[in-house]
């Protein structure tokens, strides 16, 4: 009895051959006429550049720089001391409690 490994090797060889056989399948000629029909229906190409596509191309090129910038900003924010801001905010809230319509509108 042949080993499993041998059978696997044989099967892989057969499948590879079957894959290459696919290119010999026949295709009718009508499709070429259909392609040109669709192309003509689309009409002439726009000579002006498609700004959306150009933006898409550059967007991905800028991705590493953007990630790097985000990383720097996050590092800076983590190092930043929030306590003073918190105190200012708390005192502002406390002051708000004492505010009245008289103070607000000077009535």
């Amino acid at each position: 009895m042949r080993s499993l490994q041998h059978e696997l090797r044989v099967l892989k060889k057969i499948l590879r051959q079957a894959y290459h056989e696919k290119e010999n399948l026949e295709v009718g000629e009508q499709w070429r006429l259909n392609v040109m029909h669709r192309i003509r229906r689309l009409g002439p190409l726009e000579s002006t550049p498609n700004y959306l596509m150009l933006f898409e191309q550059f967007l991905w090129r800028l991705t590493p720089a953007t990630c790097f910038l985000v990383l720097i900003l996050v590092t800076l924010l983590l190092k930043f001391d929030f306590t003073p801001q918190y105190e200012v905010f708390t005192s502002f809230i406390n002051d708000m409690e004492e505010l009245s319509l008289v103070q607000l509108f000077g009535v």
Binding site: I14, L15, R16, Q17, A18, Y19, H20, E21, K22
Partner: peptide, 11 residues
């Protein structure tokens, strides 16, 4: 064998 229909279907 690779040319046979069964081989293509197995793939």
């Amino acid at each position: 064998i690779g040319q046979e229909k069964e081989a293509r279907e197995l793939l």
